[in-house]
């Protein structure tokens, strides 16, 4: 790990300002992904701004009838919150399907959105990787790609967003609230938050330098049946091959977001219109632009079958 200086932020304004004005600065909250990457010198911040003391750890009702989740609410606390369990079961389920009890106790809501890919070539510093070292190439496309993306990918990168929580947040149309270095705030719909790789896979989201996530806002409860289904190589404590987050209404309409297949939670409102016609119609539309490798083409079939299972569960 490279040496770095360290400070505890005293307010969200000073944290954002310090992050923008200090070269090599990064925020640290749970640290479960950042420290992992710092040990491998994939992340090499020269200054860490600890935001854990900023009090962004509450879940509060919004005037619109939704919930505002503080950026520092731990995964365990979010999954266990009674309002989340009752009205946003999909989010509870997604969180509980991810990581381990120990990690969920530390990992935060904002940090989870910003976690980086688990592509093995991103982690292996002996291999070329356009995300880790822009312009070096992608070893994954012709490499072991079973775990990697099939849609939204590019010739430069086929890495996936590895998380579960963001899949649920995407289906729920969550909005990410931030503060910028100049003190202004903004709200970013999660659909616009993560960027597709294109030619710059090293740029993964739309946050500006120093911009700090302060909360994630959920709209008012939308009813329906909440289902999160995850297929992975072991029964627990593994990243998804494919995960499906769904909210299905009694009339057969619904929302579907898919994880494990793309650089961001994958959702297409046009595909959702096909849901009453069944899983095949919806998944065909959802994956119309897919370009899988030989090793991960199975994910196309898997998405359709999981969607079929989800729709059957919703009916049952």
């Amino acid at each position: 790990m490279r040496a770095f200086s360290y400070e505890c932020a005293s307010s969200i304004e000073t944290a954002a300002k310090a992050a923008a004005s200090t070269d090599g600065a990064k925020f640290i909250a749970g640290g479960t992904n950042l420290l992992d990457l710092m040990k491998l010198e994939i992340e090499t911040p020269t200054h860490l701004i600890d935001v854990n003391g900023l009090g962004l750890d509450r879940i509060e009702p919004t005037p619109e009838g939704g919930l505002r989740i503080g950026a520092l609410v731990r995964n365990t606390d979010l999954a266990a919150d009674e309002r989340i369990r009752r009205d946003y079961g999909l989010l509870s389920r997604a969180l509980l399907a991810g990581a381990s009890g120990q990690l969920r106790n530390r990992a935060t809501t904002a940090g989870n959105l910003l976690q980086r890919t688990r592509c093995p070539y991103f982690y292996d510093t002996n291999q070329p990787c356009n995300k880790r070292q822009p312009g070096s190439g992608c070893a994954a496309i012709a490499g072991f790609s079973r775990q990697l993306g099939v849609v939204g990918v590019s010739d430069a990168c086929i890495a996936t967003h590895p998380g579960d929580m963001a899949v649920a947040m995407r289906a729920l149309d969550a909005v990410i609230e931030t503060i910028r270095a100049d003190g202004t705030t903004r709200s970013i719909p999660i659909a616009d938050f993560h960027r597709l790789p294109g030619k710059t896979p090293d740029i993964e989201h739309v946050l500006e330098r120093g911009e700090l996530i302060t909360a994630v806002v959920l709209p008012k409860p939308m009813g329906g049946k909440h289902i999160y289904r995850k297929v992975r190589d072991r029964a627990s404590y593994a990243f998804a091959l494919v995960s499906v987050g769904a909210i299905v209404q009694p009339d057969g309409t619904g929302r579907i977001a898919v994880g494990g297949i793309a650089p961001k939670p994958w959702r297409d409102e046009a595909a959702e219109k096909e849901l009453p016609r069944g899983a095949k119609a919806a998944s065909t539309r959802l994956l119309a632009d897919a370009r899988p490798t030989e090793q991960n083409a199975f994910k196309i079939t898997l998405v359709e079958r999981m969607l079929s299972a989800v729709l059957a569960e919703a009916r049952g």
Binding site: Y6, C8, I28, G31, T32, L35, D36, L48, D50, N52, T76, G101, Q102, L103, N105, R106
Partner: peptide, 15 residues
């Protein structure tokens, strides 16, 4: 009171 991975947290974060 909560279980965590001691390897993935900095000691200085636990003042």
């Amino acid at each position: 009171g909560r279980r965590i991975n001691a390897c993935l947290t900095l000691a200085v974060m636990h003042e």
